[in-house]
Simulated assay, not measured.
Amino acid sequence: MNNNIPKFYTINDSGLGCLLTLLVIGLLLGSVGLGWVVNGFLILFALLLITPIAGWFVFRWWIRRNLVEDQCPVCGYEFTGFNNTECRCPSCGEVLKVEASRFKTLTPPGTIDVEAVEVSSKALED
Rank of each mutant, 00 (worst) to 15 (best):
M1T: 14
N2K: 06
N3E: 13
N4D: 09
N4A: 10
N4E: 06
N4C: 04
I5C: 01
P6W: 06
K7G: 06
K7Y: 13
Y9D: 10
T10V: 11
I11D: 05
I11R: 08
I11Y: 07
I11C: 04
D13R: 15
D13I: 10
C18Y: 15
C18E: 08
C18K: 15
L19R: 15
L20C: 09
T21N: 05
T21S: 06
I25K: 08
L27T: 05
L28S: 10
L28V: 10
L28C: 10
L29A: 12
G33W: 01
V37E: 04
V37R: 03
V38T: 10
V38C: 03
N39R: 06
N39V: 14
F41C: 15
F41M: 13
L42V: 14
L44G: 07
F45G: 13
L48N: 11
L49I: 13
I50M: 12
T51Y: 05
P52Y: 03
A54N: 00
G55C: 04
G55F: 04
W56G: 11
W56A: 13
F57W: 10
F57I: 05
V58T: 11
F59K: 12
R60V: 07
W61K: 09
W61L: 12
R64G: 14
N66E: 12
L67Y: 06
L67D: 03
D70T: 06
D70G: 02
D70I: 01
Q71N: 10
C72Q: 03
C72W: 00
P73Y: 00
P73W: 02
P73E: 04
C75V: 03
E78F: 03
F79N: 03
F79A: 04
G81P: 00
G81N: 02
F82M: 11
N83M: 06
N84R: 07
T85K: 06
E86S: 08
C87M: 07
C87E: 08
R88H: 14
P90C: 02
S91Q: 12
S91E: 08
C92H: 00
G93S: 04
E94W: 02
E94P: 00
V95A: 07
L96V: 04
K97R: 08
V98C: 02
E99I: 02
E99Y: 02
A100N: 10
F103N: 01
F103P: 00
F103E: 00
F103H: 00
K104C: 05
K104A: 09
T105W: 00
T105Q: 09
T105H: 08
T105V: 11
T105I: 13
T107G: 03
P109N: 00
T111P: 01
D113Y: 10
D113E: 14
D113F: 09
V114T: 12
V114A: 06
A116Y: 12
A116G: 07
V117S: 04
E118V: 07
E118Q: 07
V119E: 14
V119C: 03
S120Q: 01
S120K: 08
A123Q: 09
L124A: 07
L124Q: 09
E125R: 09
